[in-house]
């Protein structure tokens, strides 16, 4: 932990001139502030690439395991099951990734850096919006990994535009969902607790959806839940976009749910962030 061999010293005269030469530029716009925080998110990925290992390895394992282990039993053949499963895997991978927004925010708030931002003339929601923006990159990485692996395994993607539209829809939904986790991130004490709470909350939503099996095979009460689960709606729309096409209602429903999530949890996060001590 010691300083370098050259034992660098602050230079008093240079400190003076650095103080004297500081002038205050015009404050940047809100969008520019958000983008700067987005850049910070990128830098964190660059310096802590381990966080991408979770994001990339987990979907790979899930996709391989489910396709080859359950494919034959569930759909008659692994290739047929892959066709059914892959859009859902895409949804699952990206949704899990959104938990990290909360984890990162919690890590920030337990360190001193959030105090620095809050004591500066910075638009209050900018650090949050910027961080979530940076997370979108993680979503894209997770999505691309799943799609590429799926193609290698023999998935027939329909059209390129369909795949792009599906990924875009999932990223938009995750962006909205991540506000839940940022809220949780500000309420809990430790990053690990946020991670646990996030995954505990997501597991039932993801497994009790139409990602893995056709809901028609489920008991009635469970089927009813699966039909109202927003994750099912997102999966249905994704499947449609990557296959026979999705109706405007199927897509619009997902966007509405995303808007509702963001409308509730984004202001809640900002409120908590403002009050955080």
């Amino acid at each position: 932990m010691s300083a370098t061999q050259s034992r660098p010293e602050p230079k008093q005269d240079e400190v003076y001139s650095a103080l004297a030469s500081a002038r205050r530029p015009k404050p940047p716009g809100r969008l520019s502030m958000c983008l700067t925080f987005g850049w910070r998110g990128m830098l964190k990925i660059k310096h802590v690439p381990e966080q991408l290992i979770d994001v990339t390895l987990t979907p790979v394992l899930f996709l391989l395991m489910f396709t080859y282990l359950f494919g034959g039993a569930l759909a008659g053949s692994t290739s047929e099951y892959l066709q059914y499963l892959l859009p859902g895997m895409l949804v699952q991978s990206v949704l899990f990734t959104s938990v990290y927004s909360g984890v990162a925010l919690n890590a920030d708030s337990t360190k001193g850096v959030i105090d620095r931002f809050r004591s500066m003339p910075v638009w209050r929601p900018a650090p949050l919006a910027g961080a979530v923006l940076g997370d979108s990159v993680r979503y894209l990485v997770a999505a691309v990994v799943v799609v590429v692996l799926g193609l290698i395994m023999g998935f027939d993607p329909g059209s390129v535009t369909g795949v792009v539209a599906a990924i875009a829809l999932i990223v938009v939904f995750s962006f909205a969902l991540s506000w839940i986790f940022t809220t949780v991130g500000l309420l809990l004490r430790a990053p690990q607790a946020v991670m646990n709470a996030g995954f505990m909350g997501l597991f039932p939503l993801i497994f009790l959806s139409n990602i893995f099996v056709d809901p028609a095979t489920l008991p009635g009460w469970l089927e009813a839940f699966v039909h109202v689960n927003p994750v099912s709606h997102l999966t249905t729309a994704t499947r449609g976009l990557m296959g026979d096409g999705a109706s405007a209602w199927e897509i619009g429903r997902v966007l509405l749910e995303a808007a509702a999530l963001a409308a509730i949890f984004a202001p809640l996060t900002v409120r908590l962030y403002r009050k955080a001590s």
């Binding site: 205050r24 530029p25 015009k26 404050p27 940047p28 520019s32 502030m33 700067t36 850049w39 910070r40 830098l43 964190k44 310096h47 802590v48 360190k111 001193g112 850096v113 105090d115 620095r116 931002f117 500066m120 003339p121 910075v122």
Partner: peptide
């Protein structure tokens, strides 16, 4: 009292980040 800098970033990145936020 807690170091109000981002430990994951480099020294230079921390200062550039703040300078950008200040315009």
């Amino acid at each position: 009292q807690l170091a109000s800098v981002d430990e994951d970033l480099t020294g230079r990145e921390n200062l550039v980040l703040l300078a950008r936020l200040l315009g």
